[in-house]
Nucleic acid binder design. Structure first.
Length: 418
DNA sequence: CTTCCACTGGAAGATCTGGCCT
DNA sequence: AGGCCAGATCTTCCAGTGGAAG
Protein backbone atom coordinates (compact mmCIF):
# COMPACT_ATOMS: atom_id res chain seq x y z
CA UNK A 1 0.00 0.00 0.00
CA UNK A 2 1.37 3.39 -0.98
CA UNK A 3 2.03 6.13 1.41
CA UNK A 4 -0.36 8.43 -0.40
CA UNK A 5 -3.81 7.39 -1.31
CA UNK A 6 -6.64 9.48 -2.43
CA UNK A 7 -8.94 10.18 0.51
CA UNK A 8 -12.55 9.39 0.27
CA UNK A 9 -14.10 12.61 -0.95
CA UNK A 10 -17.03 14.24 0.77
CA UNK A 11 -16.56 17.43 -1.23
CA UNK A 12 -17.71 17.62 -4.81
CA UNK A 13 -16.52 21.19 -5.22
CA UNK A 14 -15.55 23.20 -2.17
CA UNK A 15 -15.65 26.54 -3.93
CA UNK A 16 -19.19 27.50 -2.87
CA UNK A 17 -17.89 27.36 0.69
CA UNK A 18 -15.05 29.76 0.04
CA UNK A 19 -15.06 33.25 1.53
CA UNK A 20 -14.59 34.77 -1.91
CA UNK A 21 -17.40 32.85 -3.58
CA UNK A 22 -19.99 35.02 -5.27
CA UNK A 23 -23.35 33.30 -5.54
CA UNK A 24 -25.38 34.11 -8.65
CA UNK A 25 -28.41 35.02 -6.61
CA UNK A 26 -28.60 36.53 -3.19
CA UNK A 27 -31.04 35.03 -0.77
CA UNK A 28 -33.06 36.51 2.04
CA UNK A 29 -32.10 40.09 1.23
CA UNK A 30 -34.83 41.09 -1.22
CA UNK A 31 -35.84 44.27 0.55
CA UNK A 32 -32.29 45.45 1.02
CA UNK A 33 -31.39 44.79 -2.61
CA UNK A 34 -34.41 46.70 -3.79
CA UNK A 35 -33.44 49.71 -1.72
CA UNK A 36 -29.92 49.37 -2.98
CA UNK A 37 -31.04 49.34 -6.55
CA UNK A 38 -33.15 52.44 -6.07
CA UNK A 39 -30.19 54.19 -4.53
CA UNK A 40 -27.94 53.39 -7.50
CA UNK A 41 -30.50 54.04 -10.20
CA UNK A 42 -29.64 57.76 -10.59
CA UNK A 43 -26.22 56.78 -11.92
CA UNK A 44 -27.82 55.22 -14.97
CA UNK A 45 -30.18 58.19 -15.29
CA UNK A 46 -27.25 60.57 -15.11
CA UNK A 47 -28.77 62.30 -12.13
CA UNK A 48 -26.97 63.37 -8.98
CA UNK A 49 -26.53 60.36 -6.78
CA UNK A 50 -26.54 60.22 -3.01
CA UNK A 51 -23.84 58.51 -1.08
CA UNK A 52 -24.90 55.16 0.25
CA UNK A 53 -24.12 53.59 3.58
CA UNK A 54 -24.71 49.97 4.47
CA UNK A 55 -24.85 48.98 8.09
CA UNK A 56 -24.81 45.48 9.53
CA UNK A 57 -22.63 43.06 11.42
CA UNK A 58 -20.07 40.88 9.65
CA UNK A 59 -21.52 38.19 7.46
CA UNK A 60 -24.90 39.82 6.92
CA UNK A 61 -24.44 40.08 3.17
CA UNK A 62 -23.32 43.68 2.77
CA UNK A 63 -20.20 42.93 0.78
CA UNK A 64 -21.79 40.24 -1.34
CA UNK A 65 -24.76 42.47 -2.07
CA UNK A 66 -22.44 45.28 -3.11
CA UNK A 67 -20.40 43.08 -5.44
CA UNK A 68 -23.64 41.83 -6.92
CA UNK A 69 -25.13 45.28 -7.45
CA UNK A 70 -21.95 46.78 -8.85
CA UNK A 71 -21.40 44.05 -11.38
CA UNK A 72 -24.94 44.55 -12.64
CA UNK A 73 -24.47 48.29 -12.61
CA UNK A 74 -21.23 48.13 -14.55
CA UNK A 75 -22.77 45.76 -17.01
CA UNK A 76 -25.90 47.80 -17.59
CA UNK A 77 -23.99 51.07 -17.79
CA UNK A 78 -22.30 49.91 -20.97
CA UNK A 79 -25.71 50.03 -22.66
CA UNK A 80 -25.74 53.79 -22.40
CA UNK A 81 -23.16 55.87 -24.25
CA UNK A 82 -23.61 58.87 -22.00
CA UNK A 83 -22.95 56.98 -18.77
CA UNK A 84 -19.29 56.98 -17.88
CA UNK A 85 -18.84 54.78 -14.85
CA UNK A 86 -15.80 53.63 -12.89
CA UNK A 87 -15.66 51.81 -9.60
CA UNK A 88 -12.94 51.51 -6.98
CA UNK A 89 -13.05 49.08 -4.12
CA UNK A 90 -10.96 49.41 -0.99
CA UNK A 91 -11.21 47.23 2.06
CA UNK A 92 -10.36 49.25 5.13
CA UNK A 93 -9.82 46.12 7.20
CA UNK A 94 -6.29 47.06 8.21
CA UNK A 95 -6.59 50.79 7.73
CA UNK A 96 -7.13 52.82 10.87
CA UNK A 97 -7.22 56.36 9.56
CA UNK A 98 -8.44 58.50 6.70
CA UNK A 99 -4.85 58.98 5.71
CA UNK A 100 -4.31 55.27 5.19
CA UNK A 101 -7.58 54.91 3.33
CA UNK A 102 -6.56 57.70 0.98
CA UNK A 103 -3.23 55.99 0.33
CA UNK A 104 -4.99 52.69 -0.30
CA UNK A 105 -7.38 54.38 -2.74
CA UNK A 106 -4.53 55.98 -4.64
CA UNK A 107 -2.72 52.68 -4.87
CA UNK A 108 -5.86 50.90 -5.97
CA UNK A 109 -6.43 53.48 -8.70
CA UNK A 110 -2.83 53.33 -9.82
CA UNK A 111 -2.74 49.56 -9.83
CA UNK A 112 -4.98 49.42 -12.86
CA UNK A 113 -2.71 51.77 -14.75
CA UNK A 114 0.65 50.24 -13.85
CA UNK A 115 1.74 53.40 -12.14
CA UNK A 116 3.93 53.31 -9.07
CA UNK A 117 2.32 52.78 -5.72
CA UNK A 118 2.89 55.36 -3.04
CA UNK A 119 4.18 54.65 0.43
CA UNK A 120 1.90 54.44 3.44
CA UNK A 121 3.84 57.01 5.43
CA UNK A 122 5.89 60.11 4.87
CA UNK A 123 3.49 62.38 3.00
CA UNK A 124 1.39 65.01 4.66
CA UNK A 125 -2.31 64.21 4.67
CA UNK A 126 -3.12 67.03 2.27
CA UNK A 127 -0.49 65.79 -0.15
CA UNK A 128 -2.09 62.34 -0.29
CA UNK A 129 -5.53 63.86 -0.74
CA UNK A 130 -4.21 65.95 -3.61
CA UNK A 131 -2.79 62.88 -5.31
CA UNK A 132 -6.09 61.11 -4.77
CA UNK A 133 -8.10 63.93 -6.34
CA UNK A 134 -5.74 63.89 -9.29
CA UNK A 135 -6.31 60.20 -9.85
CA UNK A 136 -10.05 60.53 -9.53
CA UNK A 137 -10.10 63.51 -11.84
CA UNK A 138 -8.29 61.48 -14.46
CA UNK A 139 -11.10 58.92 -14.47
CA UNK A 140 -13.93 61.35 -15.11
CA UNK A 141 -17.64 60.54 -15.14
CA UNK A 142 -19.22 58.85 -12.16
CA UNK A 143 -16.75 57.22 -9.82
CA UNK A 144 -18.23 54.80 -7.32
CA UNK A 145 -15.89 54.49 -4.38
CA UNK A 146 -16.58 51.51 -2.17
CA UNK A 147 -15.09 51.71 1.30
CA UNK A 148 -15.55 48.32 2.87
CA UNK A 149 -15.35 48.08 6.67
CA UNK A 150 -15.11 51.84 6.81
CA UNK A 151 -15.82 51.90 10.55
CA UNK A 152 -12.17 50.95 11.09
CA UNK A 153 -11.15 54.55 10.56
CA UNK A 154 -12.95 55.50 13.76
CA UNK A 155 -12.99 59.21 14.38
CA UNK A 156 -10.42 60.01 11.75
CA UNK A 157 -13.09 60.75 9.16
CA UNK A 158 -11.59 63.55 7.06
CA UNK A 159 -11.80 61.49 3.94
CA UNK A 160 -15.57 61.25 4.26
CA UNK A 161 -15.66 65.01 4.40
CA UNK A 162 -13.26 65.62 1.54
CA UNK A 163 -14.41 63.13 -1.07
CA UNK A 164 -18.06 64.12 -1.39
CA UNK A 165 -17.06 67.75 -1.65
CA UNK A 166 -14.17 67.27 -4.02
CA UNK A 167 -16.25 68.75 -6.81
CA UNK A 168 -17.80 71.70 -5.05
CA UNK A 169 -14.40 72.60 -3.68
CA UNK A 170 -12.90 72.57 -7.12
CA UNK A 171 -10.44 69.77 -6.54
CA UNK A 172 -11.90 67.78 -9.39
CA UNK A 173 -13.73 69.01 -12.48
CA UNK A 174 -15.80 66.59 -14.38
CA UNK A 175 -16.26 63.87 -11.84
CA UNK A 176 -19.14 62.75 -9.70
CA UNK A 177 -17.87 60.79 -6.74
CA UNK A 178 -20.35 58.43 -5.12
CA UNK A 179 -19.29 56.86 -1.87
CA UNK A 180 -20.57 53.48 -0.84
CA UNK A 181 -19.59 52.93 2.76
CA UNK A 182 -19.89 49.54 4.36
CA UNK A 183 -19.83 49.46 8.13
CA UNK A 184 -19.94 46.66 10.66
CA UNK A 185 -20.76 49.11 13.35
CA UNK A 186 -24.28 50.49 13.64
CA UNK A 187 -23.04 53.38 15.72
CA UNK A 188 -20.41 54.44 13.25
CA UNK A 189 -22.62 57.19 11.91
CA UNK A 190 -23.31 58.61 15.35
CA UNK A 191 -19.61 58.84 16.06
CA UNK A 192 -18.81 60.82 12.94
CA UNK A 193 -17.89 64.44 13.35
CA UNK A 194 -20.82 66.80 12.80
CA UNK A 195 -19.49 68.31 9.59
CA UNK A 196 -19.22 64.87 8.02
CA UNK A 197 -22.66 63.78 9.19
CA UNK A 198 -24.30 66.59 7.25
CA UNK A 199 -22.75 65.66 3.93
CA UNK A 200 -22.89 61.94 4.15
CA UNK A 201 -25.04 58.88 4.27
CA UNK A 202 -28.07 60.31 2.60
CA UNK A 203 -29.16 56.78 1.86
CA UNK A 204 -28.79 54.16 4.55
CA UNK A 205 -29.52 50.48 4.21
CA UNK A 206 -29.59 48.21 7.23
CA UNK A 207 -28.61 44.56 7.01
CA UNK A 208 -29.95 42.73 10.05
CA UNK A 209 -28.34 39.48 11.27
CA UNK A 210 -29.75 36.32 9.73
CA UNK A 211 -31.92 34.02 11.78
CA UNK A 212 -31.54 30.25 11.64
CA UNK A 213 -34.16 29.84 8.92
CA UNK A 214 -32.52 32.35 6.66
CA UNK A 215 -29.11 30.79 7.24
CA UNK A 216 -30.50 27.41 6.26
CA UNK A 217 -31.84 28.90 3.08
CA UNK A 218 -28.41 30.38 2.34
CA UNK A 219 -26.52 27.23 3.20
CA UNK A 220 -28.70 24.73 1.37
CA UNK A 221 -27.85 25.58 -2.23
CA UNK A 222 -24.18 25.92 -1.41
CA UNK A 223 -24.15 22.65 0.48
CA UNK A 224 -25.80 20.96 -2.45
CA UNK A 225 -23.08 22.11 -4.80
CA UNK A 226 -20.19 21.64 -2.45
CA UNK A 227 -20.84 18.11 -1.24
CA UNK A 228 -21.52 14.85 -3.02
CA UNK A 229 -25.06 13.56 -2.80
CA UNK A 230 -26.10 11.88 0.44
CA UNK A 231 -22.93 12.88 2.23
CA UNK A 232 -24.51 15.36 4.62
CA UNK A 233 -26.60 14.07 7.49
CA UNK A 234 -29.96 15.81 7.61
CA UNK A 235 -29.18 17.77 10.73
CA UNK A 236 -25.81 19.14 9.60
CA UNK A 237 -26.99 22.24 7.77
CA UNK A 238 -29.63 23.10 10.39
CA UNK A 239 -27.04 22.74 13.12
CA UNK A 240 -24.54 24.99 11.35
CA UNK A 241 -27.34 27.50 10.87
CA UNK A 242 -28.38 27.24 14.49
CA UNK A 243 -24.86 27.69 15.87
CA UNK A 244 -24.21 30.71 13.70
CA UNK A 245 -27.62 32.26 14.33
CA UNK A 246 -27.17 31.89 18.04
CA UNK A 247 -23.73 33.42 18.01
CA UNK A 248 -23.58 36.22 15.45
CA UNK A 249 -26.19 35.68 12.77
CA UNK A 250 -23.36 35.68 10.28
CA UNK A 251 -23.59 33.76 7.03
CA UNK A 252 -19.82 33.68 6.83
CA UNK A 253 -19.62 31.95 10.18
CA UNK A 254 -22.24 29.41 9.13
CA UNK A 255 -20.43 28.67 5.89
CA UNK A 256 -17.07 28.32 7.58
CA UNK A 257 -18.61 25.92 10.06
CA UNK A 258 -20.01 23.82 7.28
CA UNK A 259 -16.70 23.72 5.44
CA UNK A 260 -14.73 22.92 8.56
CA UNK A 261 -17.16 20.14 9.42
CA UNK A 262 -16.68 18.74 5.93
CA UNK A 263 -12.92 18.94 6.24
CA UNK A 264 -12.98 17.18 9.60
CA UNK A 265 -15.16 14.43 8.15
CA UNK A 266 -12.83 14.08 5.20
CA UNK A 267 -9.75 13.97 7.41
CA UNK A 268 -11.39 11.24 9.47
CA UNK A 269 -12.08 9.36 6.25
CA UNK A 270 -15.76 9.34 7.06
CA UNK A 271 -18.45 8.59 4.48
CA UNK A 272 -20.75 11.23 5.85
CA UNK A 273 -20.63 14.53 7.63
CA UNK A 274 -22.40 14.27 10.96
CA UNK A 275 -23.69 16.49 13.69
CA UNK A 276 -20.64 15.51 15.70
CA UNK A 277 -18.35 16.91 13.00
CA UNK A 278 -20.19 20.22 13.21
CA UNK A 279 -19.69 20.38 16.96
CA UNK A 280 -16.00 19.60 16.57
CA UNK A 281 -15.76 22.21 13.84
CA UNK A 282 -17.30 24.79 16.13
CA UNK A 283 -14.67 24.07 18.79
CA UNK A 284 -11.91 24.09 16.23
CA UNK A 285 -12.86 27.48 14.82
CA UNK A 286 -13.17 29.03 18.27
CA UNK A 287 -9.79 27.65 19.20
CA UNK A 288 -8.15 29.03 16.07
CA UNK A 289 -9.47 32.47 16.77
CA UNK A 290 -7.97 32.46 20.24
CA UNK A 291 -4.63 31.16 18.99
CA UNK A 292 -4.49 33.90 16.43
CA UNK A 293 -5.35 36.49 19.03
CA UNK A 294 -2.50 35.29 21.20
CA UNK A 295 0.00 35.07 18.40
CA UNK A 296 -0.66 38.59 17.27
CA UNK A 297 0.12 40.14 20.63
CA UNK A 298 3.22 42.34 20.87
CA UNK A 299 6.27 41.27 22.85
CA UNK A 300 5.00 43.28 25.81
CA UNK A 301 1.62 41.62 25.46
CA UNK A 302 3.32 38.23 25.52
CA UNK A 303 5.25 39.21 28.62
CA UNK A 304 2.04 40.16 30.42
CA UNK A 305 0.39 36.96 29.26
CA UNK A 306 3.44 35.07 30.43
CA UNK A 307 3.19 36.62 33.89
CA UNK A 308 -0.44 35.60 34.13
CA UNK A 309 0.39 32.10 32.89
CA UNK A 310 2.96 31.82 35.65
CA UNK A 311 0.39 32.65 38.29
CA UNK A 312 -1.96 30.19 36.69
CA UNK A 313 0.73 27.52 36.84
CA UNK A 314 1.22 28.23 40.54
CA UNK A 315 -2.52 27.87 40.97
CA UNK A 316 -2.43 31.39 42.31
CA UNK A 317 -5.37 32.87 40.44
CA UNK A 318 -7.18 35.13 40.17
CA UNK A 319 -4.33 37.60 40.73
CA UNK A 320 -4.79 41.23 41.53
CA UNK A 321 -3.07 43.61 39.17
CA UNK A 322 -0.48 44.70 41.73
CA UNK A 323 0.89 41.17 42.18
CA UNK A 324 0.65 40.45 38.50
CA UNK A 325 2.67 43.55 37.73
CA UNK A 326 5.40 42.49 40.15
CA UNK A 327 5.65 39.14 38.43
CA UNK A 328 5.68 40.85 35.07
CA UNK A 329 8.60 43.08 36.06
CA UNK A 330 10.54 40.06 37.31
CA UNK A 331 9.94 38.30 34.03
CA UNK A 332 11.16 41.27 32.05
CA UNK A 333 14.28 41.54 34.19
CA UNK A 334 15.01 37.91 33.71
CA UNK A 335 14.62 38.22 29.94
CA UNK A 336 16.71 41.36 29.95
CA UNK A 337 13.79 43.17 28.36
CA UNK A 338 12.41 46.59 29.16
CA UNK A 339 9.34 46.68 31.34
CA UNK A 340 6.55 49.17 30.84
CA UNK A 341 4.51 51.15 33.32
CA UNK A 342 1.69 49.72 35.39
CA UNK A 343 -0.76 51.82 33.49
CA UNK A 344 0.40 50.34 30.21
CA UNK A 345 0.15 46.81 31.56
CA UNK A 346 -3.45 47.56 32.46
CA UNK A 347 -4.03 48.47 28.82
CA UNK A 348 -2.52 45.19 27.68
CA UNK A 349 -4.72 43.30 30.11
CA UNK A 350 -7.80 45.07 28.90
CA UNK A 351 -6.87 44.25 25.29
CA UNK A 352 -6.52 40.60 26.20
CA UNK A 353 -9.85 40.73 27.95
CA UNK A 354 -11.43 42.05 24.74
CA UNK A 355 -9.92 39.17 22.82
CA UNK A 356 -11.48 36.74 25.27
CA UNK A 357 -8.10 35.47 26.44
CA UNK A 358 -8.50 36.41 30.08
CA UNK A 359 -11.24 37.06 32.61
CA UNK A 360 -11.42 40.11 34.81
CA UNK A 361 -13.18 40.22 38.16
CA UNK A 362 -13.96 43.48 39.88
CA UNK A 363 -13.36 43.40 43.58
CA UNK A 364 -14.24 46.03 46.08
CA UNK A 365 -13.48 45.58 49.73
CA UNK A 366 -14.29 49.06 50.75
CA UNK A 367 -12.40 51.03 53.27
CA UNK A 368 -10.08 48.21 54.32
CA UNK A 369 -8.76 47.05 50.96
CA UNK A 370 -10.23 49.30 48.31
CA UNK A 371 -11.13 48.61 44.74
CA UNK A 372 -9.13 46.48 42.33
CA UNK A 373 -9.30 43.97 39.50
CA UNK A 374 -8.32 40.34 39.54
CA UNK A 375 -7.34 38.36 36.48
CA UNK A 376 -7.13 34.79 35.31
CA UNK A 377 -6.67 32.99 32.02
CA UNK A 378 -9.81 32.25 30.08
CA UNK A 379 -8.03 29.78 27.80
CA UNK A 380 -6.27 26.59 28.87
CA UNK A 381 -2.79 27.18 30.24
CA UNK A 382 -1.52 24.61 27.79
CA UNK A 383 -2.70 26.70 24.85
CA UNK A 384 -0.92 29.78 26.16
CA UNK A 385 2.27 27.82 26.70
CA UNK A 386 2.09 26.44 23.21
CA UNK A 387 2.07 29.96 21.81
CA UNK A 388 4.84 31.14 24.12
CA UNK A 389 6.96 28.12 23.26
CA UNK A 390 6.80 29.07 19.61
CA UNK A 391 8.41 32.44 20.30
CA UNK A 392 12.17 32.41 20.75
CA UNK A 393 12.02 35.01 23.45
CA UNK A 394 9.68 33.21 25.81
CA UNK A 395 10.59 29.64 24.94
CA UNK A 396 12.78 28.99 27.96
CA UNK A 397 10.39 30.62 30.37
CA UNK A 398 7.44 28.73 28.96
CA UNK A 399 9.28 25.48 29.67
CA UNK A 400 9.80 26.50 33.26
CA UNK A 401 6.15 27.44 33.65
CA UNK A 402 5.16 24.17 32.07
CA UNK A 403 7.10 22.10 34.58
CA UNK A 404 5.77 24.23 37.42
CA UNK A 405 2.26 23.57 36.21
CA UNK A 406 3.08 19.89 35.88
CA UNK A 407 4.13 19.75 39.51
CA UNK A 408 0.80 21.24 40.42
CA UNK A 409 -1.08 18.87 38.14
CA UNK A 410 -2.62 21.71 36.21
CA UNK A 411 -2.09 20.40 32.73
CA UNK A 412 -4.25 17.30 32.68
CA UNK A 413 -6.85 18.98 30.56
CA UNK A 414 -6.13 18.34 26.93
CA UNK A 415 -6.12 21.32 24.62
CA UNK A 416 -8.90 19.81 22.59
CA UNK A 417 -11.39 19.93 25.41
CA UNK A 418 -12.05 23.58 25.68
C1' DC B 1 -24.64 59.11 55.91
C1' DT B 2 -19.72 59.86 55.46
C1' DT B 3 -15.13 58.17 54.93
C1' DC B 4 -11.61 56.29 52.47
C1' DC B 5 -8.85 52.52 50.34
C1' DA B 6 -6.52 50.99 46.21
C1' DC B 7 -7.10 51.07 42.39
C1' DT B 8 -9.12 52.21 37.49
C1' DG B 9 -9.22 54.45 33.23
C1' DG B 10 -9.28 58.99 30.70
C1' DA B 11 -6.35 62.67 28.82
C1' DA B 12 -2.39 64.65 27.06
C1' DG B 13 1.76 64.43 25.48
C1' DA B 14 6.57 62.08 24.95
C1' DT B 15 9.42 58.81 22.35
C1' DC B 16 10.48 55.83 18.66
C1' DT B 17 10.07 53.85 13.96
C1' DG B 18 9.85 54.08 9.12
C1' DG B 19 9.55 56.92 5.23
C1' DC B 20 8.91 61.14 2.33
C1' DC B 21 10.49 65.84 1.02
C1' DT B 22 13.87 69.27 -0.60
C1' DA C 1 21.64 65.41 5.48
C1' DG C 2 18.04 67.46 8.06
C1' DG C 3 13.30 68.54 8.55
C1' DC C 4 8.83 66.81 8.55
C1' DC C 5 5.01 63.47 8.80
C1' DA C 6 1.81 59.66 10.70
C1' DG C 7 1.22 55.83 13.71
C1' DA C 8 2.23 52.85 17.51
C1' DT C 9 3.62 52.41 21.92
C1' DC C 10 4.39 54.13 26.15
C1' DT C 11 4.64 57.59 30.32
C1' DT C 12 2.85 60.84 33.51
C1' DC C 13 -0.69 62.74 35.96
C1' DC C 14 -4.79 62.49 38.33
C1' DA C 15 -9.96 62.82 38.93
C1' DG C 16 -13.27 59.40 39.75
C1' DT C 17 -15.20 55.07 41.67
C1' DG C 18 -18.04 52.16 44.79
C1' DG C 19 -18.77 49.36 48.60
C1' DA C 20 -17.38 48.04 53.44
C1' DA C 21 -16.10 50.24 57.71
C1' DG C 22 -17.06 53.60 60.86
Amino acid sequence: MGMFQRDRQVFADAEPLDDSYEPEDIRERDEELEKYQRALQPIIDNRPTSNIFLYGKTGTGKTVATKFMLSHLENDATEYDDVDLSTVWVSCENLSSSYQVAVALVNELRESQDKDRISTTGYSQQRVFDILYEEIDALGGTVVIVLDEIDNIGHSDDILYGLPRARSNGYVDDVRPVIVGISNDFQFRDNLSPKVKDTLAEKEILFPPYDANQLRSILNPRAEKAFHDDVLDDDVVPLCAAFAAQDTGSARQAIRLLREAGELAQAADSDTVTEEHVRDAQDELEKNQLYEGMQELTTQGHAVLCALAYHQALDDVPVRSRDLYERYVKICDRLDADSVSERRVRDHLSDMNMLGLISVYERNEGLSAGRYHEYELDVPLKAVLEVLLSTTRFEELANIIESTADDNNLLQSDISDY
